[in-house]
Amino acid sequence: MLYVITCVDKPDHLQVRLDNRPAHLDYLNSFADKLIGAGPTLSEKDDAMNGSVVILDLANQAEAEDFCANDPYAKAGLFESVTISKWKKVLPA
């Protein structure tokens, strides 16, 4: 099952993101066989990173929750909110 994980950073936490980015990228790479796509969201004002979107092919909701809980960004307290949604890919086929 595909899951879209949408994370919103806490205000004024860009340095937390930057400090933990290498560990976060290593963590994502450890899921390379399950990773469909990932990247930061950007602010309209200045294109500063302000959140994350990750799409993973995981077995179930519990596995998605475990992924989120162990993300170095989450462990560093970066996120104001995290949403996990099931997703059905339609296009491109």
Rank of each mutant, 00 (worst) to 15 (best):
L28P: 02
F31C: 05
C7W: 06
D33K: 09
N50V: 06
S30G: 07
D46T: 03
L28K: 04
D46E: 15
H24I: 04
A48Y: 05
L78F: 02
D12L: 11
H13V: 04
V16T: 15
R17M: 10
L56H: 06
N70S: 02
T41Y: 12
A38R: 04
L2R: 11
F79W: 15
L18Q: 15
P72W: 09
G51A: 11
L18H: 09
M1H: 11
N20D: 09
N70Y: 00
A32G: 02
D9K: 07
Q61C: 00
T83N: 13
D26F: 00
V90W: 11
K10E: 13
L91D: 07
I84K: 03
D71F: 02
D9I: 04
T83Q: 14
I5V: 14
A69C: 06
S30Y: 08
H13F: 12
L42V: 06
A59S: 13
F79V: 01
A23F: 05
P11M: 11
P92D: 09
F67D: 01
A48V: 14
S81H: 09
P92Q: 12
R21L: 13
P40F: 05
D12S: 11
T83S: 10
N20W: 08
F79N: 02
S52G: 12
G37S: 15
N60D: 15
G39I: 03
K10Y: 09
V8M: 08
C7M: 15
S52R: 06
D33M: 03
I84T: 03
P11K: 12
K34A: 09
L42F: 15
A69V: 06
I84Q: 08
A59N: 13
A59P: 03
G51N: 10
V90F: 14
C68V: 15
D66Y: 00
E44H: 09
L35W: 02
C7A: 15
A38Q: 05
N70I: 04
S52H: 12
L56D: 08
S30L: 10
D47M: 12
Y27T: 03
S43G: 07
D46C: 00
L78A: 01
L25C: 02
G39R: 03
V8C: 07
V82A: 01
A32L: 08
L91N: 13
N50F: 00
K88C: 05
K34M: 05
L28N: 10
M1S: 09
L58I: 05
A64D: 05
V82N: 01
D9Q: 08
I36C: 02
F79R: 02
I84Y: 01
L78H: 03
